[in-house]
Design a protein around this nucleic acid. Structure first.
Lengths: 121, 121
DNA sequence: GTGAAAATGACAATCATTTTCATTTCTGTT
DNA sequence: AACAGAAATGAAAATGATTGTCATTTTCAC
């Protein structure tokens, strides 16, 4: 398990943001890669285990992956029309660090999403 | 759509915390209710639309539901052993409100989870 | 070159959720 | 009470992401 893993990693770098396993599979095929869907899933698993990639969830439950260490942001999503605003999470980062050290945890990551109704809806 | 909705709501109150649709279905059956799984899903949908219930996701992607307005907290989870600490989210609440008003959103809810490695692992 | 071990991919299996559709219950009206 | 039409229900099938299986291919050390 090596060529496939680096291929998936490269594709993830290329897209720059989030991508689901299925999307990565399609992207790699579009670029002529001969990788199976099963292997995409396995590679992502490997990357997650190796702490190179974070996994989170779309609202519909589909898993999406992103490179760790990528300067990440959060989202404010309108429940009604789906409008999405990217937001800074400086306060969250600090909060996460504080809570982590208070509880003796290390390597702490986080997810945080806001959802409500936008001005137009 | 009425009797079933209130039944699901009552069950959700009874469990007090999170529950998935499947869990609610089983619980209600154990108590002798004659409700179908489909109707549990439909009732939950109604409750979510009516802002009575929040929906979030377990790590495996399964949807879990909780009563809105319940004094809610967040979690700090150890990726290695699963140890979970309930944490206060005062800072998050403020942050969410600020961001929401800056962007003209109303009725804004949020999810926030921390995950890392605990002292023992 | 050989053989064991790891990696791969096609396909089937699983599991939560949604859709479909026929049946039952509820509603108001006569 | 009887009736028609609407809404609600639930069993079973459909869907879609993810995981498991297993035979085949590739890799690597010798």
């Amino acid at each position: 398990m090596r060529k496939s893993v680096s291929g998936v990693l490269a594709t993830l770098e290329h897209v720059g943001g989030f991508a689901s396993a299925q999307e990565l599979y399609q992207l790699m095929h579009r670029d002529g890669a001969k990788i199976g869907l099963t292997t995409v899933y396995r590679s992502l698993q490997t990357l997650v285990e190796g702490n190179l990639v974070d996994i989170l969830r779309r609202e519909d439950g589909e898993a999406i992956y992103r490179l760790c260490g990528e300067n990440h942001h959060h989202h404010l999503v309108c429940k009604s029309c789906g409008k999405t605003v990217e937001i800074e999470g400086g306060a969250i980062e600090k909060w996460a660090k504080t809570i982590a050290s208070e509880n003796g945890f290390r390597d702490v990551g986080h997810t945080a999403e806001l959802f409500g109704t936008c001005a137009n809806c």
